[in-house]
Write a protein that binds this DNA or RNA. Sequence first.
DNA 1: GCCAACGTTGGC
DNA 2: GCCAACGTTGGC
Length: 156
Amino acid sequence: MAKQYWLMKSEPDVYSIDDLAREKKTYWDGVRNYQARNFMRDKMKIGDGIFYYHSNAEPSGIAGIAKVASQSYPDPSQFDPKDVHYDPDSKKDSPVWYLVDIQFVQKFPKLLPLEALKGVKGLEKMPLLQRGQRLSVQPVSESEWKMILKLANVKD
DNA sequence: GCCAACGTTGGC
DNA sequence: GCCAACGTTGGC
């Protein structure tokens, strides 16, 4: 299986790339969208590349790189009645929500703002740039991955 | 803080 | 199964 690439959104006020850089590794809990879950549960493989995207930020944009650090497993927060992500419909023997661990790779020297991605030839198909797109876990093609690394002035 | 766009819920 | 109402996302 060839290496695949992803983009994952996080609000930096909640958990930023600096938080990830400090902790080195975290688990991506709280995703409650089926499409995003399916990518994590069915598609992600250890070692896949992840663009770490800051949403609801000033400015919003890609902040750096992480990588998938585990197979998918059930999101523990769905079983915890005290957790905001608690899902009373989910049962332990048939969990609804899955997540993966992600590991810090590098922070971009400068955040690559969303604005800088718009209008770039070769990136126009990215879900991120589609009007109204809110998916928090998205696939990125290899060519998009390489172009963005170039724009950010970093090597993989 | 506003609001457009979207996904989900629930009445019918 | 339709679709209006609602809650959420996320750029601005």
